[in-house]
């Protein structure tokens, strides 16, 4: 009897264990189909030439081809500028709705707006900026006709690095607000009071206590903003039509373009992008975990 019971009990244990994992199945399906499988395919294809033979030429070109190198640099520059700019602006906005004493209804409105705006990108965003800050945009027109200021003659150009950075900011700073607002909420009132009780001024509290506590969150979110901007394609393409050769625009030209068609090189460029974005994301996760450890 005992000999029969043992396998039965083992079977029931394995059934329980299988059932336990059943709930996680959608996650594994998603990860395999949309992350692991495409990335693996891309990485394999990056090492193959047009005829399917192994080659390192594609990777070598990432460092030798000046157009590609400058595209990476341009993408890194615009990502860094919008991550820092959007990060700083977003931080102060998050501050004003949490500690800054903005009325609660305004806080809910800003958070809802941020949730929508952080996903507002691509052609609609580009069109919105063209309609407002383009050469004939209504803000450009108001500034010109009412205030007598022509921003275009003053050097502004929506279709330039500055214009694109400004457009990217529109979805960058709301993401910062969404992530920083809970981090600012987690600053305990007692920390400020303890610092004051020990003789610190408001500035000393922020310098020695609050900012060091928030710094991992601030830097980590900036890494996320960097990755967010680095992977953006549609907004830049719709706004500049390819006049600013970002890495994403060059990548499309290699994979789908008529002139620069070289899919294998495209895969290698995409692999480079995955590495840059992976570094940013790992930086974000590492810094965020540091900050969570302190704030728990």
């Amino acid at each position: 009897m005992a000999q029969i019971a043992l396998p039965a009990s083992r079977r029931s244990t394995s059934t329980v264990s299988a059932k336990k994992w059943l709930g996680a199945l959608p996650f594994f399906l998603f990860a395999i189909l949309f992350l692991i499988w495409p990335s693996a395919r891309l990485m394999i294809d990056a090492f193959l030439d047009g005829q399917g033979r192994f080659t390192l030429d594609n990777l070598a070109q990432l460092f030798q081809n000046q157009t590609i190198v400058s595209s990476y640099l341009l993408s890194i520059q615009i990502s860094a500028v919008t991550a820092i700019g959007g990060g700083i602006f977003g931080f102060f906005l998050a501050y004003s709705v949490t500690i800054g004493g903005l009325p609660k209804p305004l806080r809910s409105m800003l958070i809802t707006f941020s949730a929508v705006a952080s996903n507002f990108a691509g052609v609609p965003l580009a069109f919105a900026f063209v309609a407002t800050l383009g050469r004939t945009g209504f803000i450009t027109a108001i500034l010109k006709n009412i205030f007598g200021v022509n921003i275009y003659t003053a050097g502004f150009n929506l279709y330039s690095f500055l214009g694109l950075s400004l457009t990217y900011m529109y979805f960058q700073f709301p993401l910062m607000v969404l992530i920083m607002a809970p981090a600012l909420d987690a600053l305990k009132k007692e920390w400020r009071e303890a610092a004051e009780n020990l003789g610190a001024t408001v500035f000393q509290y922020w310098w020695h206590v609050a900012l060091p506590i928030l710094m991992p969150s601030i830097l980590g979110t900036m890494f996320l903003l960097f990755a967010n901007s680095f992977g953006a394609y549609a907004t830049a393409y719709a706004l500049t039509g390819g006049s600013l050769p970002l890495i994403t625009i060059q990548l499309r030209a290699q994979i789908q373009g008529d002139v620069l068609h070289n899919p294998s090189l495209g895969y290698a460029m995409a692999m480079g992008m995955i590495i840059v974005m992976a570094v940013s994301t790992i930086g974000y996760i590492w810094l965020q975990s540091r900050s969570e450890r302190w704030l728990k």
Partner: peptide, 18 residues
Amino acid sequence: PNQRNVGMIFQAYALFPN
């Protein structure tokens, strides 16, 4: 508060986590 020489201990410890 920062001008008084008074020490305070809080219920939730209030240690600086950093």
